[in-house]
Design a protein around this nucleic acid. Structure first.
Lengths: 206, 206
DNA sequence: CCTTTAAATGAGCATTAGATCATCAAGATC
DNA sequence: GATCTTGATGATCTAATGCTCATTTAAAGG
């Protein structure tokens, strides 16, 4: 499939024809989308002029929609953290009609599909390094609503109880795949899920 | 033990008495030391004026010892990456007079002592996010000189061969302890080694 | 087609940050 | 104690960056 004609000159910025007026809500969303991508690439210190260039608008326009850069970053956090944890997972993990191993495998497959994502991984890391307590709140929530239940279910079905720390170890080993790929840009398997299943297997083996 | 009298006024900057002349080599080292700490705290975008303030010297002095900020960062990388991997570990892991499990436990105890470190963890992450290929080179080296031998040894002694990906999973679970602590500032056990041993245990169980 | 409104622009202000350099003075040498 | 070397300072230059605002103009309403 040949590249479309109109993106020939300078792929980065959208074709900068005459100035386009968008409904405020739409423009705002567009800016946030671009900002997520942009800050994920260059870090939260990335400057607003470069972001504007990517968007194909002027830098001052950004400040029409956000009071300050910090305000924009807050919106980026909102977008990126939004719905990262599916409300169905807690129920899935407690569904005793299925073996725990299967539940955990399903969970980590779905979880992986949400977090093995360039923008998420990097913004999560940037915001963690910046000291944002969103990270702590997120991981706290994850621990309370997903890992602790997992613990209970393992004990109920398999008769042994790993420590929370053990579960964090399993979890960390899985998340580390995304870190290697998106933070360190190391090669990782195209399909990480067989490896993840083996890790869960080892974890549940008595 | 009561605090010493001379650090009373403003603990951050060293007592700024009259200007002190240091031998160049000593001053250079002092700047690198402070820079490691400083950049680990605030990120590689931290500015040289704040760094100078911490050191208790003028900003321009930094540029007497380093051609550019990038040059200083390079020196910081050098300091931080230097000797992070002990040359003895490859031999330790291949020492067939001891059980692999014991070798791996010893290795990860010593490795943990070197990498569960605030400055290392954070600078490694900052440089990874910045795209420095030091991270890739470091992890490549780690994989080739330590993880692959581990694989061989496990196969030789226990008769089964995990995939490299499985070993990265073990490794990641361990490293994640440091990430939780130093990047996300989450609580982790004071003594992580029992948990690490259990992880190695699970990994080697047939 | 004309009017109106508000989305978008572009010039520019205030600060900050990397880098430079003439000048000062600590401390070694004689 | 006078001299000299060079480590350290402070003022400053330039470019970059967050943010503002008067002006322009796309597009909706009549």
């Amino acid at each position: 499939m040949p590249s479309l004609p109109e993106d020939s000159p300078d792929a980065a910025a959208e074709a900068d024809g005459p100035r386009r007026r968008l409904p405020p809500e739409e423009r705002r969303e567009q800016i946030i989308d671009a900002a997520v991508r942009f800050f994920a690439d260059v870090g939260l210190d990335g400057n607003t002029r470069d972001l504007a260039k990517r968007l194909g608008v002027t830098q001052s326009l950004i400040f029409r929609y956000f009071d300050s850069k910090q305000d924009l970053i807050e919106a980026v956090y909102g977008r990126v953290y939004l719905d990262r944890i599916s409300p169905g997972w807690a129920a899935l993990l407690r569904d005793r009609s299925r073996p725990v191993k299967e539940r955990m495998t399903t969970f980590y497959r779905e979880y992986g599909e949400r977090i093995f994502d360039h923008d998420w991984m990097r913004i999560f890391m940037f915001s963690g390094l910046a000291g944002a307590d969103l990270n702590r709140r997120y991981l706290d929530h994850l621990g309370r609503t997903l890992l602790l239940p997992m613990l209970d279910e393992i004990e109920a079905e398999l008769g042994f109880a790993p420590s929370p720390e053990d579960l964090w170890n399993l979890h960390g080993g899985i998340v580390y795949i995304g870190i290697r790929k998106h933070i360190y840009q190391m090669p990782v398997p195209d399909d990480p899920y067989p490896g993840i299943e083996r890790a869960i297997d080892r974890f549940l083996r008595v």
